[in-house]
Amino acid sequence: MNATQRRRLLLNRAILILSTVAAVIGLVFLFWILTTLLIKGLDSIHWRIFTHDLVEKGLRNLIVGQMILAGVASLIGVPLGLLAGIYLREYGLNSAFARFIRNLSDVMMSAPSIVIGVFIYGILVAPVGGFNGWAGSVALAIMMIPIVVSTTDSMLSLVPQELREAGIALGASKAQVILTIVLKAAKIGLVTGILLAFARVVGETAPLLFTSANNDYFTLNMNQQFPSLTVSIYQLATFPDKPSQDLAWAGSVILTALVLLINLTTRYIFRKRKSK
């Protein structure tokens, strides 16, 4: 074994060990976070949390509020994202305009979420004179749009061209082909994308801080300040008293469990399709 050879092998060994060590370091941190969350959370979750509102040291109104905020955001953001994605893949393809929008959508995906909150404050809070649930939902919807655009774009690109041609050959219009054939063929991928977009925004805090803000009481009226689990976690965690902090941990566990549940469900749906 000559010197070059020896050096190559040593370098190889060193890098492989370093990669493994890096992986272990990363995993240790991540494991630490999860166990902390689990221990603190299970410690502080009681049944009464689900039946009382924040004003009585419960989380009921916050969980419901968070789901409504994200749900309404989906009602706004998903159709728009789907339509834009359909345009990019089915009409625009590689035209300069489509490429431009695709790039902008990617940039929008990286836009700081707090900036979106500030923007919505400017158009939906300041002009109407107060925080309101709609503003929060629109802020979340703006975060969803580029995610849905991007997954729609790539999921539709997986639909074989022959399928579209076959539809056209039967005399269907382009819109009919898209709505009845292409979307159906890409259904599972699209659902996956939508669920992931939902999971991404349901855990957001920053865009809600000065749009829907927060509400200690239960409400379904989106014209007023709206209860939010994430915003409450932020506020409760910085209070010095233990009950508040415990409530923040309980909220964190519930939020994480919800997000992970959606992710696991998505994974399950996707895998089921693959195995077919």
Partner: peptide, 10 residues
């Protein structure tokens, strides 16, 4: 997928 606020609290 874990919300960033969890990282902050930790």
């Amino acid at each position: 997928a874990i919300p960033s606020i969890i990282y902050g609290m930790w």
